[in-house]
């Protein structure tokens, strides 16, 4: 199972994950975190492919993705 976890307290609401998700499966929340900012949430809980693009673009390491499908392609 692909699992995506948001450390919402770290999020500054920049929205780069939303912008770059190839499945368009993320949106910014209506509710606010401790900093008073929106944070990402999944639209379809089964829609994430675990590609990790949101993690790669997040400037605040607020996203963790676990996917059984692929090796971590960031390791070179």
């Amino acid at each position: 199972m692909t699992k995506i976890r948001f450390e919402t307290h770290r999020c500054k609401g920049c929205g780069l994950c939303v912008l770059f998700c190839p499945r368009k499966n993320l949106r910014l929340s209506d509710s606010l975190n401790e900093q008073g900012l929106s944070y990402p949430e999944e639209i379809d809980p089964d829609g994430c492919t675990g590609c990790g693009l949101c993690f790669r673009m997040c400037p605040d390491t607020a996203i963790e993705v676990q996917s059984p499908k692929k090796d971590n392609q960031d390791k070179q």
């Binding site: 790669r56 996203i63 993705v65 996917s67 059984p68 960031d74």
Partner: peptide
């Protein structure tokens, strides 16, 4: 298992 998370 691919894991994308903050490095230590």
């Amino acid at each position: 298992m691919a894991v994308f998370k903050r490095t230590p």
